[in-house]
């Protein structure tokens, strides 16, 4: 496993990391990539947000209501 990831590879690892435990080299490579890459940092936050949104789906009955 190489240490330098492209954004394409990082995106897949971010997603897979939500579904299984990544290997240590994968986690290190991803951590390194995220420290230098704003685009993938956004993707990471957005995938995590999607998880929170999906858990609450179908959402509140009214705006600001219970979800």
């Amino acid at each position: 496993m190489k240490l330098k990831l492209t954004c394409k590879e990082a995106g897949r690892l971010i997603s897979e990391g939500l579904d299984r435990k990544l290997s240590l080299p994968q986690r290190i490579a991803l951590r390194l990539h995220l420290t230098i890459c704003d685009a993938c940092t956004r993707i990471n936050a957005q995938f995590r947000f999607l998880r929170r949104a999906a858990l609450r789906y179908p959402g509140p009955e009214r705006d600001g209501g219970e979800s």
């Binding site: 956004r42 957005q46 947000f49 929170r52 999906a54 789906y57 959402g59 509140p60 705006d63």
Partner: peptide, 20 residues
């Protein structure tokens, strides 16, 4: 990828879930 601002506020909006 665009900056989403504070996406958490969307979670209390019915329209957001319709979009989802």
């Amino acid at each position: 990828p665009a900056e989403w601002g504070d996406p958490e506020t969307a979670l209390s909006q019915r329209r957001f879930f319709e979009t989802l």
